[in-house]
Each structure stands twice: as C-alpha cells, then as structure tokens.
C-alpha cells in the first residue's frame, strides 16, 4: 500500500514537473523555463503542488507572467491546489541553461551564452560566433539589448545584427 502511494505521488510529481516545464519564457519564446534553468523544483505536499522559480535578473519583468503561466499550466494539468514560489538563492546563472536550450537559441538566431560565467567587472572582450553565418568576425554594439539577458552584437562577415544571450 505504502509503495503504491509513493509511486502515485512520484507519478503526480513527474506530471506536475512536465506541465510547469513546458511554460515558455515570454521574451524568448523558443526556450522553456526548464531549458533556462528558471524552474528550480516542483514538489507535492498534502495535495498542494508548489513550483519554485528563480529570476534571471533582479528586475526581470517577465517573472510575474511566468509565475501566472505556471499556475495556469498546473491547473490545466488537473492540479487544483497550486502555489508558485520565487526564490533568489542560489543566484541564477547561464551555466544552468540546458544544451538543448542553447541549440534552440542558436537556431532561433540568438547567440547562446558562451563558456562559464565569470566574475570580471572591468574590461576584456569576448569572442561570440554569429548565429546566422557562424563567423567569429563579430563586434559588440552594446552590452544592453532588447531584454536584460541579451546584448546587441553585429556580424562583420554577413553584416547582420544579432542578439547574444549574455553569460552571467
């Protein structure tokens, strides 16, 4: 009996995770919150489902919508008692982005974060490959792009501008 109950709970948890994990980032719609590493945990206690999410940046304006969409996704999956909790710690890093997520970004035309997050404050340059033509002959236009998580770059080989998902 006990085994059956825990198996049932495990199955429910997997279903709840799958539902929450399917929610997309409203600003980068090719990525799910699981690809991004924004979805940290889904747990079930006394019949209540709690999804735990973390913001990419302190001021990320997408967080409210993500929380709402997770709630809706869980309710659509048949869970009635649902709660979404936002945590700040441990701090989100691009190191949590899945390999699949990076490939989806590149296919969408956004250069994925390159390498490991560092703690550099002053100076130094990165080399970022153009997501369209693959050339490394690229140039940063501005560290700040269309959203907090992206920088604005251009390719000198194919002359196209592109977004780079910053490494933090």
């Amino acid at each position: 009996m006990g085994v059956a109950v825990s198996l049932d709970l495990e199955r429910q948890r997997a279903e709840a995770w799958a539902a929450a994990a399917d929610v997309c980032d409203p600003e980068v719609p090719v990525l799910t919150i699981a690809d991004l590493g924004v979805l940290r945990d889904v747990r079930i206690e006394n019949g209540r489902v709690e999804a735990v999410i973390t913001p990419t940046y302190s001021g990320c304006p997408a967080m409210n919508l993500i929380a709402l969409n997770v709630e809706v996704a869980l309710e659509e999956a048949g869970f009635t008692d649902v709660k979404v909790t936002t945590v700040l710690s441990p701090a989100w890093t691009t190191d949590w982005m899945s390999e699949e997520g990076k490939q989806k970004l590149a296919a969408f035309g956004i250069a994925p974060p390159k390498g490991k997050a560092g703690r550099r404050a002053l100076f130094g340059e990165e080399v970022v490959a153009c997501p369209r033509c693959g050339s490394a002959d690229t140039q940063k236009v501005s560290e700040f792009g269309s959203t907090a998580c992206k920088a604005h770059w251009r390719c000198r080989a194919c002359a196209e501008p592109f977004d780079y998902f910053k490494c933090i």
Binding site: P55, Y57, S89, P90, A91, R119, A121, F123, E143, F144
Partner: peptide
C-alpha cells in the same frame, strides 16, 4: 542573513556590468 545574502548574490553579477559600463 539568508535573504540579504540571496539578494546580494544576484546583485553582485549585475553590479559587475554596471561598473564596466560606467567605467567605459
């Protein structure tokens, strides 16, 4: 204080590029 630590761990990353941008 765990909450201040959590805010700071995020803010440190952000402050790094605030320094960089204003310094440049």
């Amino acid at each position: 204080d765990a909450t201040l630590a959590g805010v700071a761990a995020k803010a440190e990353k952000e402050m790094a590029y605030h320094v960089r941008h204003s310094a440049e």
